[in-house]
Design a protein around this nucleic acid. Structure first.
Lengths: 191, 191
DNA sequence: TAGATTTCTTAACCTATATTAATGCGAGTG
DNA sequence: CACTCGCATTAATATAGGTTAAGAAATCTA
């Protein structure tokens, strides 16, 4: 996927006033490892495009347990999809020193999307691809065993298993770190 | 949500030639209970708007087991979100005698979306709402117990638990019918 | 580098859910 | 109405994964 600024630069045809005012809405920021970019309950929803590094989004349940919703390595877009009560439900933080482009959800919807050529069927396609990924994950979660989930993860995020702690992968899969460790061990030994 | 035709009728401002050619793309059909509307592997992806009745979408795994992805009662839109290899991955069938409006995905993307006023930020909002629902379900699946999942289901589909067999609800939740029966029983007795 | 801290692994034990099977109920069909 | 057949329930048993705990390995930090 292209970053926000790259996407905009593809459409220089438009007048430069509109273009530069949109460009001002996009901030480039760097965050140190372990920095929190968004807290659940924040009223401003932002979209982050990862240029370098690694982010994750997650919830914390009543018992204080984290549940990772997604990871976002280079080239990924990450944001809280929830729009209830206008506030966010997910935390987003940096698992590595990370460089991002940021845009407000409001600006994204009102300025960015209408500006780019994506405001035709291509834009719907991008979102449908995203929904396809979620559909696959839901089906996996209702049907697959721990080891099958792990294998699904490695396909979805190639090369990421070396960059994040296993306990976070377990959290993403909806199992405990101990269960993941066990299941990986027995699988390796079984070969 | 509005049906396809209702959506179109909101935009009579456009010229009537374009409007009537679009209208021709939308078919109204009725399907008897237990009829299959779409098989996994079908090359034509259709979108179904349910005017009356009840549909569901589901996969069948290697062991022949069904996994229900979603239900679609009156007012819901149902379609296979997967776009891999241009073919569908889900089955869609009728749980009741059902009346729908149907449109091809291709026509939906190329004609319907550009036609309606939804081709601005509103359209993105509709899809974001959909993604928010999926986000909630994923978080529920990685974090909630059987009974919590059931309660989440009754909130998502109020009034539907009386219209579908329990074993299908169990399938939607990713648990066995026996487990759902037990868990409901102990909960009722526990009160 | 040493020490502290976090993460991973292993193991013993526990619990929720799966599996299998038997029974009874209810809806659909002749 | 009688006969299926699919569905729900219950129970006995099995198992995957959870919990707890402790030590080993890796990573961070001074």
């Amino acid at each position: 996927m292209l970053s926000f600024t790259e996407e905009i630069n593809q459409h220089k045809n438009s007048n430069s006033i509109e273009l530069s005012s949109l460009m001002k809405k996009i901030k480039r920021q760097t965050f140190a490892k372990n920095t929190i970019l968004q807290n659940a309950g924040d009223e401003k929803i932002s979209l982050f495009y990862v240029k370098r590094g690694l982010l994750r989004s997650y919830t914390i349940d009543d018992k204080g347990k984290e549940h990772i919703f997604m990871f976002a390595p280079e080239g990924w877009l990450i944001a809280d999809g929830s729009i209830n009560s206008g506030a966010t439900e997910l935390f987003i933080d940096a698992l590595e020193n990370t460089e991002v482009e940021v845009i407000d959800q409001k600006d994204f919807l009102e300025l960015f999307l209408p500006f780019t050529a994506l405001n035709d069927s291509k834009r719907a396609e991008v979102m449908m691809r995203r929904m396809a990924v979620m559909q696959k994950r839901i089906i996996m979660l209702i049907s697959a065993s721990a080891i099958e989930r792990y294998e699904h993860f490695t396909k979805t995020y190639p090369g990421i298993s070396q960059r994040v702690p296993q306990k976070m992968i377990a959290s993403y899969l909806g199992i405990t770190p101990e269960a993941l460790s066990k299941v990986k061990g027995t699988k390796a030994r079984g070969k």
